[in-house]
Design a protein around this nucleic acid. Structure first.
Lengths: 136, 136
DNA sequence: ATCTTTTATGCAACATTGTTGCGTTTATGT
DNA sequence: ACATAAACGCAACAATGTTGCATAAAAGAT
């Protein structure tokens, strides 16, 4: 399904920047920091990028993969709905090339601690990605 | 051991702001966002707080517990050295009161994924803390 | 206690990102 | 093509991060 139809299905109007952001995030199937998005989409106003990201997050099309060094990384959602973001996956950042990707793992990571109630767990792993392993 | 001696042991000069930050983070044994530190330490310059945090992180006395909504949360280290930050713990954020604490768990969270090498894993859990469970 | 030297601090300045208001433009159904 | 609700672009401001540099303070030597 192309970006335009994805947007229509979530009740969002089809605009250039929305299509552009979905395509930008879809290219490498990896998370991009805000700064990269701004460079890629320099023909659009910064505010528009900001509000578009909010809208796409709100409708469950993208998610904030991680925040690091004051940069937010955004990635496509694989199985979120307008009502529920469902991220049972690990965010992996490569220390070599700084790329961030969502790793879909089967294993559930459970965690139980007395006296507190845990609703959700976020896991961020760091290491070396497959591409960088090959080149070094 | 008091803040002054902790600083001397890591080869850091004992200054007002360093003592103040260590004491601020030591009070509730919980992580504080940068903004809170700045309010608490308003008699000091913003730049000084910034550089002091860097110095304390560098020497393994404090660590950045998490970044969320463009706020960095800082907490005391329990067993880090000048050479190695060793954080085998979970960062827990309460959705009710927004407090962040380090939970020291015994369980090791292992994760293995083909084709990549994982060096470290960070876990952030969200839910309701013991204090908020009692009051609701 | 004073001096010296190294280090830390405060101030100014600028970059980046987040955020809101508002007038103008655009997307979509009629 | 038109009307209208929504999105966009611009201006403006806040918060945090970051650096350079002159001044002040800490630690060891005298």
């Amino acid at each position: 399904m192309d970006a335009a139809n994805i947007l229509r299905n979530r009740g969002l109007r089809v605009t250039k920047i929305r299509v552009a952001i979905l395509e930008a995030l879809g290219e490498g199937l990896q998370a991009l920091p805000y700064g990269d998005l701004q460079k890629k989409l320099s023909q659009f106003d910064r505010t528009t990028i900001y509000r578009t990201l909010l809208a796409l997050i709100d409708k469950g099309l993208i998610h904030k993969a991680l925040e690091e060094n004051n940069e937010s990384y955004y990635a496509l959602c694989s199985d979120c709905t307008s009502n529920l973001h469902n991220h049972n996956h690990v965010h992996f950042k490569c220390n070599e090339c700084s790329s961030v990707q969502c790793l879909h793992i089967s294993k559930e990571v459970g965690l139980s601690i007395p006296e507190i109630v845990i609703d959700s767990i976020e896991i961020t792993a760091k290491g070396t990605c497959s591409t960088c392993l090959l080149t070094h």
